[in-house]
Design a protein around this nucleic acid. Sequence first.
DNA 1: ATGCAACCTCAAGCTGACTTGAGGTCAAGA
DNA 2: TCTTGACCTCAAGTCAGCTTGAGGTTGCAT
Lengths: 146, 146
Amino acid sequence: MNRNDLIPIGVLARRTGLAVSAIRYYEERGLVESIRTGGNQRRFLRSDIRRLSFILIAQKLGLGLAEIERELASLPKGRTPTVLDWQRISRSLRSEIDQRIQLLTRTRHKLEECIGCGCLSLDRCQLYNKEDRAGAAGPGPRFVLD
Amino acid sequence: MNRNDLIPIGVLARRTGLAVSAIRYYEERGLVESIRTGGNQRRFLRSDIRRLSFILIAQKLGLGLAEIERELASLPKGRTPTVLDWQRISRSLRSEIDQRIQLLTRTRHKLEECIGCGCLSLDRCQLYNKEDRAGAAGPGPRFVLD
DNA sequence: ATGCAACCTCAAGCTGACTTGAGGTCAAGA
DNA sequence: TCTTGACCTCAAGTCAGCTTGAGGTTGCAT
């Protein structure tokens, strides 16, 4: 059982908690790669457990797969990520979190004011500013304060 | 131009910044109601501007329409929401925000530790805990730290 | 009276992130 | 050898939150 063992998709699924179908989907999207056995079955690198785990963490932070793809693409191609790589990416995630916290804090502040003054003129309220939203969203789900 | 004027959907759209189609969709979902003119056109209450604005704010906080529906349903039926109603709901929104901030803060903390120790054993990392996620998500978009 | 913007309905489409199903193959133990 | 479970592909479905389009009607100003 070498550290460089090739593992089948089911094992990868069990180790990461992802569904097998999700991993196949990620592969299709180019987030992981695999080689095939003679019988056309996928074999992943053990290090892909880390790679997928990273994806899961980044998702928790609200990043979409496209953004995650970009982060991961910043790694030298084909190279298995090193400690330093992960640290760099993690730091960039941290700043993501920081921004989100700030945004939420500002929002809470505005909400406090709204409650405080009981203004009710929501159409003039800072919290909800028509101009801010103009053409911002597009279709699809709207993410937290984005 | 009375305060109790009935307004057509286009005006409501302009005042809230929503698309006409979105308002119709909200009506279908039961988030707003309208009466019809002889020619089958919708007429809304002026106070629906507030109602829709509230929906927009709640969405910013990451609530889904179903949750918002629940909040709004807590209002005495048919009654135009009063200052007190809005304050009560707003306060419940505030606690939503608080929880989100706390969750983010905890996550950042864990991430700090990860960076600090350079552990890389993400599959054991606190940040990403298989058990935490087990059966939690389901399909559809995943919201921030939800 | 007429023109035209604003309104109507209903069905279908879209994005993101997957899942589900049908129909078939592979691999390892009894 | 046989069986069973893990694997394969491809197409279609799901959910939220809308938008877009086709084809038709209203209502207000001129």
